Simulated scan of single mutants.
Amino acid sequence: MLTKKQLELLSFINKRVQRDGVPPSFDEMKEALDLRSKSGIHRLITALEERGFIRRLAHRARAIEIVKLPETLGGTGFQPRVIEGDKPEATPALAMQIEKTHALELPVLGRIAAGVPIEAISEASRSVAVPGQMLTSKDPHYALEVKGDSMIDAGINDGDVVVIRETNTADNGDIIVALIEGYEATLKRFRRKGNMIALEAANPAYETRVLPQNQVKVQGRLVGLIRTY
């Protein structure tokens, strides 16, 4: 039996992973549950682990595997998935463990900066196998290799491959591929502030960039993450 807060946290993590492909940060968990400090989140995560609903993975900061869901969250038939906190754990090929699902080949269109923007690359250099369940819409998808560490607190590390759904729109809080002034590409969290666009890093070492909306073009939204070793 879970308490109301434990159930809320498990539900929030599960929904965000389903929506974004990466889990919320501890700060986002704290805000969603209206707690005063992150220590409360740590206690809830410990309680969920003790009850067998999640498993924390060793040597990875806040990396969590959802073992099961209660029936109230649609637990019947649930397949375990590895989700990421600050630094996600993964299988040797995939950052999400999805059993008995078909894989699709996506082109890797070069490297995307999670740090200082680099020149945009639009030619496929190779392809990567992606679980079909990661592609949640009929829109075209593509993959990019991450360079830099500005999104580490969102569970995205240097060398990861991100799966992107093509779109030219974004909601506040989405992690997007942004094309800046037509030639620089970067992976950041999107915030609209009137006629300005804020591109937020998930690493306190990097400042938020605020640009006029006519200088920023949304090229896609993050839907998944692949990690190889």
Rank of each mutant, 00 (worst) to 15 (best):
L135T: 03
L94M: 12
I98R: 08
V128P: 03
H141K: 06
A95G: 09
E105N: 12
V130H: 00
S127R: 14
A95T: 05
K138P: 11
L144T: 03
E99W: 09
A129R: 15
V146L: 07
I121P: 07
P107S: 04
H141V: 06
H141N: 05
A129E: 13
P117D: 01
H102M: 14
S122Q: 14
I121H: 12
H141Y: 12
K147F: 08
P107L: 05
L104M: 13
A93F: 11
E145W: 10
E119I: 12
L106Y: 01
G132A: 15
A143M: 06
V128K: 03
A120H: 07
P92N: 06
P117Y: 02
K138F: 10
A95I: 04
A129N: 14
P140H: 03
G115R: 02
K100V: 12
E105A: 15
P92L: 11
S125K: 13
L135P: 00
I112P: 03
S122W: 13
A120C: 12
V130W: 00
E119Y: 10
E123R: 06
V130E: 03
R111V: 10
T91G: 09
Q133P: 04
L144G: 01
Q133Y: 06
V116W: 08
S137V: 10
D149Q: 08
T101E: 09
L104G: 06
K147D: 11
G115W: 01
S127A: 14
R111L: 09
A113E: 03
M96Q: 15
G148W: 01
Q133R: 07
Q97I: 10
A114H: 01
Q97S: 14
M96L: 15
I98C: 09
V130D: 04
E99S: 14
S127W: 11
M134N: 01
S122G: 10
A103P: 09
E99Q: 12
T136Q: 06
A143K: 01
V130F: 05
L94D: 07
G110N: 03
S137R: 07
R111W: 08
V116H: 09
T101W: 05
L135N: 00
Y142W: 04
S150K: 00
V116I: 13
K100H: 11
S127D: 12
T101S: 12
M134D: 03
E123L: 07
A124R: 04
V116C: 12
A103F: 12
